[in-house]
Design a protein around this nucleic acid. Structure first.
Lengths: 192, 192
DNA sequence: CAATGATATGTAATAATATTACATCAGTTC
DNA sequence: GAACTGATGTAATATTATTACATATCATTG
């Protein structure tokens, strides 16, 4: 029996991928949040969340899979999907249905230092609202959402429908990509 | 050259599948609507729409494929997806993103006799709102939607985001499936 | 009516996304 | 350390969707 099997050879993975300080900070925040909900932020989950936080556009499961392979491990789809399920359940990420891809929940993005005051699931209510730009692929989570949610709640109330989660996805063209009404301005840098 | 290749041997398909009178009526309505938009309601598209209208819950593309095979033809995935694309573009059906499945647009369901007054695309604006029951799988298109849409429009306006389409999907438990607050009442007949 | 061009469909292969089932491993508790 | 729980590894497969190219249909119009 090998005495050294305790920590797998994936030492770089624990905080690997060169996550920026800002993202490492967010990862710690996330770890605290899910600890408060009785969840364990394992290295796998941490890495997946870090990659999603790092990306500027929604990331697909198989994209994540590819990126994870650059580390010491050789993960298979279930690895990624399990991590994603965990992060979704704990309100740390959202799934954009129209894209089959994932984005961080905004309350991880904002730079509040360490608030242990509330669980993320409560804030997010498993519901989110997004603006999706067809040109640049960027996704913006709508902060103004309470109004939308209130209308939905009222409709559900009338119909005796118990809302468990809700998603609002608006697709179109964002300000930066708009075909320049004043001045000349191409459809944004590049869709990438 | 065979002189009889004009109408393929799929004669039963033209109004096959034993669509009810009500559905045949809706299909005619739909044909008029898309004719008004310069679209052709071919037998394929008609059959796909009919099957979607017939179903009581959202139907997946491969479900449709299976059902179409019972007719004279042996369609492949592109056949179904092309028909679905057409029906989506002409506002006759909606895609439920969370289910990767399709439902008819409500304005086909309602029993207005024959109104040629407006194109469906205008009514639907490529946007729709749904309540999705996890228990019975039923989906209800929200009629009350203008309020939701107005809020979204106002948000998009503020952000200079050009809305092209929007979907709202609320997942939960419908009235019939609710675990009986007054009286005893199981979780509805059966999810089917 | 044949030639044309546009639209629609057939067909085979494959891509992209997601899940199942079962084995193994790690951490906790008694 | 045995037994339990939760997390991960692994292989196979299921489900959903698209690409590329060939063929057919339809509505003209020359």
């Amino acid at each position: 029996m090998n005495m050294q099997t305790r920590t797998p050879p994936s030492s770089p993975a624990d905080n690997g991928y060169g996550f920026s300080d800002r993202i490492q900070h967010q990862l710690e925040h996330a770890a605290h949040l899910c600890a408060g909900q009785g969840g364990r932020m394992t290295p796998q989950r941490r890495d997946v969340l870090g990659l999603i936080l790092t990306a500027t556009t929604p990331v697909g499961a198989y994209d994540l899979l590819e990126q994870l392979k650059t580390s010491g491990r050789k993960p298979a789809p279930p690895t990624v999907y399990r991590a994603l399920d965990f992060l979704l359940e704990h309100g740390l990420i959202h799934r954009i249905e129209r894209l089959s891809a994932f984005v961080p929940c905004t309350h991880l993005q904002q730079d509040h230092p360490h608030d242990h005051s509330h669980g993320p699931a409560e804030n997010c209510l498993h519901s989110a609202q997004f603006l999706i730009c067809r040109s640049c692929g960027g996704v913006t989570e709508i902060a103004d959402a309470p109004r939308v949610l209130d209308v939905l709640k009222s409709i559900c109330g009338k119909k005796n429908f118990t809302m468990q989660s809700a998603s609002v996805e608006v697709e179109g063209v964002c300000e930066d990509c708009a075909p320049a009404t004043r001045g000349q301005k191409g459809p944004a840098p590049a869709p990438n």
